[in-house]
């Protein structure tokens, strides 16, 4: 289980990082979302992985650490709000700048313009 979760986090982080380094806003936003997932999973596992145990102390013999779950919940909510904001911002930038390049200028189009 530990290895599986570690692999999942690694793949999510790797894909997220790759997408964040792309030049269009949409892949970048997708990358940010994936990175947030990876980080949330990571934070969750920091309470150690326990099977069949409630996050309540003294309710049964074993219990899982409730704090990371509370932290992850907070992080998910914040991450969701931030993603919503960045999507709107990307749309706004697309409208204001005329293209969806993160630097606001479309290098391919600029080259075409110069060659014309």
């Amino acid at each position: 289980m530990e290895i599986l979760i570690a692999i999942v986090i690694a793949v999510l982080t790797g894909t997220g990082l790759y997408l964040i380094l792309r030049s269009r806003t949409f892949p970048v936003v997708m990358g940010l979302t994936l990175l947030t997932y990876a980080v949330n999973l990571f934070l969750f596992t920091m309470g150690r992985i326990q099977y069949n145990s409630p996050p309540v102390v003294n309710a049964s013999d074993t219990y899982t650490d409730p704090l990371p779950q509370a932290l992850v919940l907070t992080a998910i909510v914040i991450g969701f709000a931030m993603t919503a904001f960045v999507v709107v911002l990307a749309l706004r930038a697309r409208a204001d700048l005329g293209n969806d390049h993160v630097d606001g200028k479309d290098s391919v189009d600029d080259v075409k313009e110069a060659n014309r």
Binding site: I20, T25, L32, M82, V86, L89, A93, V102, G104
Partner: peptide, 17 residues
């Protein structure tokens, strides 16, 4: 502002992660 804002927001979101 849209351009500077986009960079600022994206960088800070990575920072938050």
């Amino acid at each position: 502002r849209a351009k500077a804002g986009l960079h600022y927001v994206l960088l800070n979101l990575v920072g938050s992660s």
